[in-house]
Every structure is written in structure tokens, then in C-alpha cells.
């Protein structure tokens, strides 16, 4: 063995180890989800076999047909619609409130205002169960129980602080001088926000929308308590009911899970650049 061969061999070993690690990581990340997908295609008889066959001999998209067109999928389709409406509505409201709030915090910082920011963040720490009941009674009094609008309003309470936080980070990065030019031309604060700051921080706005939709799509406890019928039940509630209702058809449960996961997954992958930017917005500044 020559002296030159040792480092080369070590480098080769490092490369091999790197790829072994990469494959293991990929498998760990993918395996559970892939199994969920396979389960949604395989006939029940294959799923409950022992020893389990990992690649089912027969696969079909029948369950997806059931979910989208069949009678058993009726409640699920309503839930899909409700989830989309709640997420869209809640994110829109929170985005407007969050943009104005973030702009104020970014442009006129003061001790009192940053206190407000922390106060808003503190609401994020409140466990939903702590406000569930009074909220329930309020919603019922104003007739917003079991309604998409009511649920969306509730969601704005945790989306707004979160979006404000993200947007403030983006607004801080835009030099104020850029706005001054606009204001000299007679634009108001709101005008310069709309015409100057927003276009420049478009990535921030996209990030905020992305987070709003993902968080609203994910929420479970409020939806569980505040909705009761197909008029307002969201996907997480419908999915949790799948487990008691279709305990016998694991495949249908899996198909429902896949369909419920697709919208946020597609959004997140399509906009992954913004997702990561949003995640790091708060942390890098420390």
C-alpha cells in the first residue's frame, strides 16, 4: 500500500458512507407515506394478509373513485370544500390584518408596540382548550357555530400573530428610503405600503399565504368542537371520523389521508423556496 492510496481510500469510504446515509434518510422520510399510498391502492384482502406483501399484486384507484364520486365519499367531499373555504377565508383576513400590523411594527417601532408584538405572540402559547368554551358560547350566541365563517374567524386569531411576525421580518429588510420617494409624491402610508413595500416583499407575502393555508388546513381541535355537520366540518375532523367509521376498510382511510394531504403538500413543494425563507425569517435574526 502506497502512502497516496490511503487518503483516496478514505475519501471513497466517506463518499460511500454519505450515500448510504442519504439513502437511509430518504427511506426514513418516504417509507411511511409510501406505505400509506400503497395501502390506498391495495385491496383489503391483500392488506390484512400475513405475511404481508409489500407490493400488492392487485392495485386499483377504486377508493379514490369512491371518495370523489361515490356515496361513501359524500361527507368527505363536503369536508374538502369546507377546508378550502376556511383556509382561504382565514388566510385572507389574517393577511390584511397582518400586513397592516407588520408594517406599523416595522416602520414605527416603539417600546409599547414591541410589547404588543410579544402580547400577540403570547396568544400563540395559549392552549386552545383554555379558550374553547367561552369561544363556543360566543359563537353560538352570534349564530356562527357550525359555520365556515365562524371557524375562519377563530382561525384568524392564531394566523394573524404568526403572519404579522413573518411579514415584519420581510418588511424590516426593505429600506425606508424607497418609500420616501413615493411619499414625497403624495402617497399616504397605506399607499406606500401597497405601492412600494408589498411589491418588493412579494416573497414574504407568498410565504405568509403558504403558512396561513397550511396551518388552517391542519387545525383540528377548534374544528372538532365548533362544527358538527357537513355544512362546516373540515377535513381533519372528517379524517378522524374515518378511523371509527371505516375501521374495517383501512384502505379507504388511507386514500382519504392521501387526498387530505395533497393540497398542502403540493403547495409546499411548489413554493418550497418561500417556505424555507419563511421558516428562517424569524430565526436568523435571533
Amino acid at each position: 500500500m502506497t502512502r497516496a492510496a490511503a487518503p483516496r481510500r478514505r475519501r471513497l469510504l466517506a463518499a460511500v458512507l454519505t450515500y448510504v446515509g442519504a439513502v437511509l434518510l430518504a427511506a426514513f422520510l418516504l417509507a411511511p407515506f409510501v406505505w400509506l399510498f400503497i395501502s390506498s391502492l391495495a385491496p383489503l384482502a391483500d392488506l390484512i394478509q400475513r405475511p404481508l406483501q409489500w407490493i400488492p399484486p392487485h392495485a386499483s384507484f377504486d377508493r379514490y373513485r369512491t371518495i370523489f364520486f361515490g356515496a361513501d365519499g359524500r361527507d368527505f367531499r363536503f369536508a374538502l370544500r369546507n377546508s378550502a373555504e376556511v383556509a382561504g377565508l382565514a388566510t385572507s383576513i389574517s393577511l390584511v390584518a397582518g400586513m397592516l400590523g407588520a408594517y406599523a411594527l416595522s416602520r414605527f417601532p416603539s417600546r409599547g408596540r414591541s410589547g404588543l408584538l410579544y402580547l400577540m405572540l403570547a396568544t400563540y402559547m395559549t392552549p386552545p382548550v383554555a379558550i374553547l368554551l367561552p369561544l363556543y358560547l360566543i359563537l353560538s350566541r352570534v349564530g356562527l357555530l357550525n359555520s365556515v365563517l365562524g371557524l375562519a374567524l377563530v382561525y384568524t386569531s392564531f394566523l394573524t400573530p404568526f403572519l404579522t411576525w413573518i411579514l415584519k421580518g420581510f418588511f424590516d429588510a426593505i429600506p425606508e428610503e424607497l418609500e420616501e420617494a413615493a411619499r414625497i409624491d403624495g402617497a399616504s402610508r397605506v399607499g406606500s405600503l401597497v405601492r412600494v413595500v408589498l411589491p418588493l416583499s412579494l416573497p414574504g407575502v407568498i410565504t405568509a399565504v403558504l403558512f396561513g393555508v397550511i396551518l388552517a388546513w391542519d387545525e383540528f381541535l377548534y374544528a372538532l368542537i365548533f362544527t358538527s355537520s357537513t355544512a362546516a366540518k373540515t377535513l381533519p375532523v372528517a379524517i378522524s371520523e374515518f378511523t371509527s367509521r371505516f375501521a374495517v376498510d383501512y384502505g379507504l382511510m388511507a386514500a382519504g389521508g392521501i387526498v387530505a394531504a395533497l393540497p398542502p403538500l403540493i403547495l409546499a413543494f411548489a413554493l418550497q423556496r418561500y417556505l424555507i425563507a419563511g421558516l428562517t425569517a424569524g430565526s436568523v435574526k435571533g
Binding site: Y136, L145, I225, S228, S229, S240, E241, S244, R245
Partner: peptide, 24 residues
């Protein structure tokens, strides 16, 4: 008749919360 279905596990709590909310 508008009918709604919930899981058995949720039935008790739905009846209770609806009653707590009063009419409607």
C-alpha cells in the same frame, strides 16, 4: 329532517355542547 352523523365517541359531547349553547 336534516340529519347529521357523528362518531359514537363524539355523540355525548355534541349533545352537551349543543344544549349549553341554548336554542338553535
Amino acid at each position: 329532517v336534516d340529519i347529521e352523523f357523528v362518531s359514537y365517541e363524539a355523540l355525548h359531547n355534541k349533545i352537551i355542547t349543543a344544549a349549553a349553547a341554548g336554542g338553535g
